[in-house]
Nucleic acid binder design. Structure first.
Length: 114
RNA sequence: AAAGUAGCACACACGACCGCUGACACUUGUGUUGGAGGAAAGUCCGGACUCCGUAGAGCGUGAGGCUGGCUAACGGCCAGAGGCAGCAAUGCCAUGGAUAGUGCAACAGAAAAGACACAGCCUAGCAUGACUAGGUGACGGUGAAAUGGUGGGGUAAAAGCCCACCGGGUGGCUGGUGACAGUCAUCGCGUGUAAACCCCCUCAGGAGCAAGGUCUCAUAGAGAUGCGUUGCGCUGCGGCGCGUAAGGAUUGCUCGUCCGAUGCAUCCGGGUUGACUGCAUGAGGCAUCAGGUAACUGGUGUCCCAGAUAAAUGGUCGUGCACGACAGAAUCCGGCUUAUGUGCUACUUUUUCG
RNA sequence: UCCCGGAUCGUCCAAAGGCAGGACAACGGUUUCUGGUUCCGUUAAUCUAGGUUCGAAUCCUAGUCCGGGAU
């Protein structure tokens, strides 16, 4: 049994889903990331990295960081939810992304219990 | 040792665990194995490949431009010629034609391509002048550029007018495949700009993988092909003119070509979304032998080496060091250009020591 | 990914290879008791680097940035 699998089903892929999350979803912001989220039947994640973040190499690295940190924190999500993560700045690191993501999930958990 | 010139190589490595992605196996969720670059970049050139049969012919337009070779092709590469820069190693050059023609050369300057006028110099005349006639040709605050240059002879004053050397044009001879070089004779020889128009030579049909092809699903009509018919006037019954229709299409224009109004018959197509395909065995890599100064070519052996589609290479730990620059494939190749870290080799100049 | 177009004062536009001009804006003055209007003046630019040319915003080459089209 795999501990932290991350198959393609766990990703937001369709352009329609991105548009739906943008219109119907709610927004949560930290200093470095923006989270668009909405309830779903299966928890999924998507990443949008704009050109102001950096060049192609760095954009691709940021996407890998986001996916890796999501893969590791996904078991802590209690309610199924779709998330689109949008980095806001070029001052990023893997540690910062992980910290913000787990903070967002903790905030979400607390909100649902109340 | 310092400064410089040219070329080549590498692009953090290894191991463990957790993940991503292609292929192949079988026990269908495991295993084995492959997984970014020298520039993947810019999209600046050249091709392959695909579609457009209204893609033909001519003109135009665009690109290239010393010579010979290489190449699928090129604006690329190699070997040379000439010129420029540098003490040198070496580097750079859109480098055909300015007597085929046209244009332009601001300001300044007498004059900017017409060698004339103006100013000057000289001679002659008598009216002795701010004069007339003739000779002369670059001397004259310029200018980016001034009618080949320097020196001498010559003359009334001068001038390729004459001579020597240098430069240039034309013709011959020699060497070279050739660009060109050398040499002899001859001509006293009217600027620059062709990255201005242009002339000459060479090349180019257009669009681009979001090209193009196949399938599924839903919706509802339009298209293709073939055959026939089509008005009026003249008539020698072959045709001719007018009209429908002085129209439309053909990715710059012309010619040429095609279409057209209506009836019948036959056939079934179009767009959207998604999937598959195009799509990785190639003008391929490596080794070696042969030919060639070289670029490159040929033979033999061997290898298969990314293929995604919100888009695959990351995270953690350990060890080592130079502590890791520029930077991410998207149809594929050959170049060019730009960005960029480290190391090595050869050569040049200068200095010091032996 | 493929294919196009552009870059001139702070802004919007001009400019046959020969002094970069106009409008608005800004600033200073004039007029007014003050402000506005009017009038006068000033400041201010050729995306960058090379090349051709006597001379480049203009011609050529390379780069940088911005914008557009094709799903």
């Amino acid at each position: 049994m795999k501990a932290y699998p991350f198959p393609p089903a766990y990703r937001v892929v369709k352009g329609r889903d991105f548009a739906r999350l943008k219109v119907e979803g709610k927004v949560f912001r930290t200093k470095k990331l923006i989270f668009n989220y909405a309830p779903a039947t299966l928890s999924r994640v998507g990443v949008i990295v704009t050109k102001k973040v950096g060049n192609a190499v760095f954009r691709s690295l940021v996407k890998r960081w986001v996916r890796e940190s999501y893969r590791l924190t996904r078991p802590t999500i209690n309610q199924p939810i779709d998330i689109v993560i949008i980095p806001r700045t070029s001052k990023l690191s893997f540690a910062a992304i992980s910290q913000d993501l787990s903070f967002f999930i903790g905030w979400l958990d607390e909100k649902n219990t109340h």
